[in-house]
């Protein structure tokens, strides 16, 4: 992928079979960034991902607090519901979500179809169940005595949650943010369906697809776009790879 992106366009189109080039060039990157407007799409993808990560993590953190530090009726039921939500195939929900977005768009500007807001909302929803589940373990590991101490010091429950608990579970928050980020970043289906005509609101995957032309695929450009899209994910993957192994460890020994 990287090799093709660095190849001069002429060499690619001539069907030069050597898998590498001696004259690497950034021309493909320049082409997709400047001419095809990938800068804008990159920004859109980042924007959506950042909002989703913030909103979903916040919602999930609060929910995780409720589900671990309190005992109340329906608690187990809710836990199971969170899990079931995780199992629902999002692909099947595209149709109703499309109509929901359409309706919401009439009432609330900024989150209807064609708007980045629609993507943010949908992905926030789909990121929450997993985030709740991941954060639950972190929140549960904070000893109860700490809460009592804070209470004795005069902190209310909300103060405790925001000032004490949140910093303590920060590593967990980071990990689950990365998961949400990757999920949102990779999305193809919703971006394809919701962004109808607003070219300026396209995200990277769709922009990449638009480089596929009837007969003259600009493979250098496509590969350069692919590199741009894959890099952040790869970096984050390296960040969480230990967590991946750990999470799996638990699952395997289960």
């Amino acid at each position: 992928m990287l090799l093709s992106a660095l190849k001069p366009r002429a060499a690619l189109e001539a069907g030069d079979p050597t898998p590498y080039t001696l004259e690497p060039t950034l021309e493909s990157f320049r082409r997709v960034l400047l001419i095809d407007g990938f800068g804008q799409y990159l920004l859109n993808s980042v924007l959506v991902a950042v909002v989703v990560v913030t909103a979903s993590t916040l919602c999930a953190f609060l929910a995780a607090v409720a589900l671990t530090r309190y005992r109340f009726r329906l608690r187990t039921t809710l836990l199971v519901m969170v899990l079931t939500a995780q199992m629902v195939p999002v692909e099947a929900l595209t149709i109703p979500l499309f109509f929901l977005m359409r309706t919401l768009g009439y009432g609330i500007p900024g989150i209807g179809l064609n708007q980045l807001g629609s993507l943010m909302l949908v992905h926030t929803a789909f990121a929450i169940p997993l985030a709740v589940w991941m954060l639950r373990a972190f929140v549960a590991s904070v000893p109860r005595e700490l809460e009592e101490a804070a209470w004795l010091d005069g902190a209310g429950s909300l103060t405790f949650v925001t000032r004490v608990l949140f910093p303590l579970v920060a590593p967990g928050v980071v990990a689950c943010s990365i998961f949400s980020f990757i999920m949102t970043w990779n999305d193809f289906l919703f971006a394809r369906t919701f962004i109808i005509s607003a070219q300026e609101n396209q995200t990277l995957p769709i922009a990449l697809l638009s480089l596929f032309k009837p007969d003259e695929n600009d493979w250098g450009g496509i590969m350069a776009g692919s590199v741009l899209m894959t890099l952040p994910v790869l970096v984050f993957f390296l960040f969480v790879q230990h967590r991946l192994a750990n999470g799996l460890g638990g699952a395997v020994k289960g």
Partner: peptide, 19 residues
């Protein structure tokens, strides 16, 4: 606990259960 659950429940209710 219900207060803490409201944001998540709202988003999930509208964007997941309702669809």
């Amino acid at each position: 606990p219900w207060m803490y659950l409201v944001p998540a429940a709202l988003v999930l209710g509208v964007m997941l259960v309702y669809p």
